[in-house]
Lab assay of single mutants.
Amino acid sequence: MATGGRRGAAAAPLLVAVAALLLGAAGHLYPGEVCPGMDIRNNLTRLHELENCSVIEGHLQILLMFKTRPEDFRDLSFPKLIMITDYLLLFRVYGLESLKDLFPNLTVIRGSRLFFNYALVIFEMVHLKELGLYNLMNITRGSVRIEKNNELCYLATIDWSRILDSVEDNYIVLNKDDNEECGDICPGTAKGKTNCPATVINGQFVERCWTHSHCQKVCPTICKSHGCTAEGLCCHSECLGNCSQPDDPTKCVACRNFYLDGRCVETCPPPYYHFQDWRCVNFSFCQDLHHKCKNSRRQGCHQYVIHNNKCIPECPSGYTMNSSNLLCTPCLGPCPKVCHLLEGEKTIDSVTSAQELRGCTVINGSLIINIRGGNNLAAELEANLGLIEEISGYLKIRRSYALVSLSFFRKLRLIRGETLEIGNYSFYALDNQNLRQLWDWSKHNLTITQGKLFFHYNPKLCLSEIHKMEEVSGTKGRQERNDIALKTNGDQASCENELLKFSYIRTSFDKI
């Protein structure tokens, strides 16, 4: 039985969820670079991206490699990797027998973001014989899940209580170790020597080791999670996991709180800001991140802002960003909400898709409305799209047979046209069989910064309504002859009103 693990408890099935942008060198404390989270699957090609990484700022997932063999891993080693800020997950990587050479110096898994409450997941690794993470000293947050690894031993010899604050939620089941077939031998045991430290858990006094050649490092209890030197002297209180010299914040392997210019500090002093819960960055760093993602459509890219001495992905609820200094300031009234469309555009074809934009005031991208039916549609669209004030790209209304009016965009005031449909149009209306009105132009103002209007096959939309939009939106004169079809717009509506004058002759039985 794995020490510190839980057996036999019912657990939810383990679901495996399925960018080499360097964020800056980590400095003297770390020998390499800070790398983003990685999802490495199918083959070993991307694994080489770990070569210079000291910190993975995010998670590391290595999974679904069915053609790899043990010899493929023999020359692979990433000794610079010290810390993973989120979680480490391995799933069905064939041929991998140990992690001792792959990650010989991995010391800390912070667990800032977890995989279903777990910071370390080893699942269905069919050839893994031992973990071998002999320098792993601290899992700051989260638990361990090690399950269905039929060859995995050296679990009962690990004292997880020396690595985690609590072992109650560890789930370590259905491994070879369960069948008591392992016969784990710690260093020196074969020669009758006791080389590794022994600890007591559940009444068992057991030597602690990761492999037959690597003991588990056990520091004096007084050192807590700070770690200790090879001689057993406690590291500085700002260290986490390990250090090369005692009581020196510049000799830590990793930091308990924050890293700044080669030393570990309790908090980031001005003019620095907390970033990702582990390091200090200056304003320029946060500003660069903001600008890199301002026009990016890459998933996970955030326009970072500053709030409460932190550089964070977005302002919290009730705050909006001051564009001059990136500071989050309290909103006066309802907060603006910028919604970034991942692929640059979004099609609204149902109430469900409209709900995804609920509360958005600025759309960074283009909207395509293609709704053919739905219950209580006008009210639903207004509830979900009615706060949109600005669209950076274009607005396209296409084959939306259920629409009679666009009044559900009740606050839309600006279409920038930074991206144009077919390279020309910022407003595009095609084949809307029941569209009769755009907006009530006596109450609604709309500016279209650039781009043209396109109207074709809107049989109940009168040309007068379209011409009014040209005047109000500032697009009059931009359109070419064929942009607004004269014969297919309003051709099934009563669009022309003329005053009919009647004269009559009164007659009676005795007068003409």
Rank of each mutant, 00 (worst) to 15 (best):
K80Q: 05
M65W: 02
H28M: 05
R74D: 06
L88C: 01
T229Y: 03
W278C: 02
L120Y: 01
T189F: 12
K80P: 01
D165L: 11
G188S: 10
C215A: 09
I306F: 14
V93S: 01
K310C: 04
L63S: 13
C196V: 13
H290M: 12
C228Q: 03
F115V: 13
I185L: 09
S296W: 01
C335W: 11
Q303S: 11
E168S: 15
L60W: 00
C293F: 06
P336I: 12
T194D: 07
S237K: 05
M321Q: 14
L155R: 05
R162M: 08
C234H: 01
V173C: 15
F285C: 04
N43E: 04
G95N: 05
L120D: 00
L289K: 15
I56L: 08
F73T: 07
C255T: 00
N202R: 04
K191P: 08
D277F: 04
G183L: 05
C196W: 02
E238V: 02
L50H: 02
N43D: 06
N175S: 10
C223R: 02
N150Y: 06
I109P: 00
H214W: 14
N309H: 13
C215P: 14
N175A: 13
A119I: 00
D169A: 07
G333T: 03
R263A: 01
C286I: 03
D277C: 02
L89A: 02
R145Y: 10
V265T: 05
L326Q: 09
C328N: 00
E151I: 06
F66V: 12
R41V: 09
L102Q: 01
V34R: 08
R298W: 11
L136Q: 05
G227N: 05
V206P: 15
H291V: 14
N117T: 03
G37I: 02
T157H: 14
P330M: 03
N202Y: 11
V34H: 10
R113A: 05
R69A: 15
H48A: 06
I40F: 03
M38R: 04
V167H: 10
T45A: 04
P270R: 03
N309T: 09
K251I: 01
I201Q: 10
C328Y: 01
P187C: 02
C235V: 00
K80I: 04
C328I: 00
P249G: 02
N295K: 15
E314G: 05
V200M: 10
V121L: 03
A190M: 04
D165H: 06
L60N: 00
N42L: 06
P197Q: 12
T107K: 12
E180N: 05
D75N: 14
P269M: 11
S237E: 12
Y30D: 07
P36V: 05
L89N: 01
N105A: 06
P79N: 07
P336M: 08
G262L: 02
E57P: 00
K100S: 14
R92H: 08
A119Q: 01
K294T: 02
L233P: 03
W210Q: 06
F78T: 01
P31L: 11
Q245V: 09
D75Y: 15
R279K: 05
R298N: 05
T140G: 05
N135Q: 10
C219N: 04
Y118P: 00
L327G: 02
A198M: 11
M65R: 02
K176V: 04
D277I: 04
E57F: 03
E51H: 12
I56C: 01
G32K: 05
P271S: 04
A198C: 09
S143C: 06
I158T: 13
G32F: 11
D178H: 14
P269G: 01
A198F: 10
C335S: 06
I158M: 11
L152V: 05
I185R: 06
T199F: 10
C255S: 00
G111V: 00
D75F: 11
L164G: 15
H214A: 14
I312S: 06
N179V: 13
N135P: 03
T107P: 00
L327M: 08
G300I: 12
C53N: 00
M137S: 10
M321E: 01
R46E: 06
